[in-house]
């Protein structure tokens, strides 16, 4: 018998001919208290992102270009090859930038597929404004634009918005480790700086556009 058949036969023997299958109780919360894009969710997302040491800017759609220009001023910025989100002078990932090229830029600028306010999580799915995974991994800074209608409250809502057949990356703050005495330290192999730009209607944005150091 080959390994596959043997393992499958062992499993059949182990579980017996008619294993009992009990239904899975799914009475956990799926939707949150707030509809996607609600002002409360934008505030919660911003708070949770900051809690894990991301930098958060809030702006309106009309201010987005100016905000991005301000945030990335003086940086060499890489963007996906056909992204609608960009800044003047950005380097497009076309033809695909080498790992060394990506290591050499100051930041990558992308959109996202969705975000979860409860956990402060941004999801990327390789869409046109996000690009391939290496692009958002190798540069040391990731500037990520999140539009209000992309923000849901709960983890189930987040996953149900995504297509598992696409390569997905869930990001909750900059890279971090808890490996030294189980204390969290930010900044290891992934981007050490995560800058989230949360775009919402006027009146939801606060007044916190300011220049980041570094």
């Amino acid at each position: 018998m080959n390994a596959r058949d043997e393992i499958l036969s062992r499993i059949r023997t182990a579980t017996g001919p008619s294993p009992v299958i009990r239904p899975v109780p799914r009475d956990y919360a799926v939707a949150g208290a707030h509809a996607p894009g609600a002002p409360e969710l934008l505030d919660l997302l911003a708070e949770r992102l900051r809690d894990y040491r991301a930098t958060v800017h809030r702006c309106t759609p009309g201010d987005l270009d100016a905000t991005l220009a301000e945030v990335t001023r003086g940086w060499r910025v890489a963007v996906p090859d056909s992204s609608a989100i960009t800044v003047p002078g950005a380097v497009a990932d076309r033809p695909a930038l080498s790992h060394a090229d990506l290591d050499g830029v100051d930041a990558v600028l992308t959109g996202c597929a969705a975000a979860c306010a409860d956990t402060g999580t941004i999801a990327l799915d390789g869409g046109a404004d996000q690009g391939r995974r290496a692009l958002t991994l190798v540069p040391d800074r990731h500037v990520c634009v999140i539009h209000a209608d992309q923000v849901v409250q709960t983890v189930p809502e987040l996953l149900r918005r995504l297509d598992p057949r696409r390569p997905l990356t869930f990001i909750s703050g900059p890279s971090a480790t808890s490996d030294i005495e189980l204390d969290r330290v930010e900044g290891v192999h992934g981007p050490r700086t995560l800058i989230a730009v949360v775009v919402g209607p006027a009146g939801t944005t606060g007044n916190n556009v300011h220049r980041e150091q570094g």
Partner: peptide
């Protein structure tokens, strides 16, 4: 595991 709301990175691929 780490007592975080969500770990910094989760990757899925198909």
């Amino acid at each position: 595991s780490t007592g975080e709301r969500m770990n910094p990175y989760t990757s899925t691929w198909t």
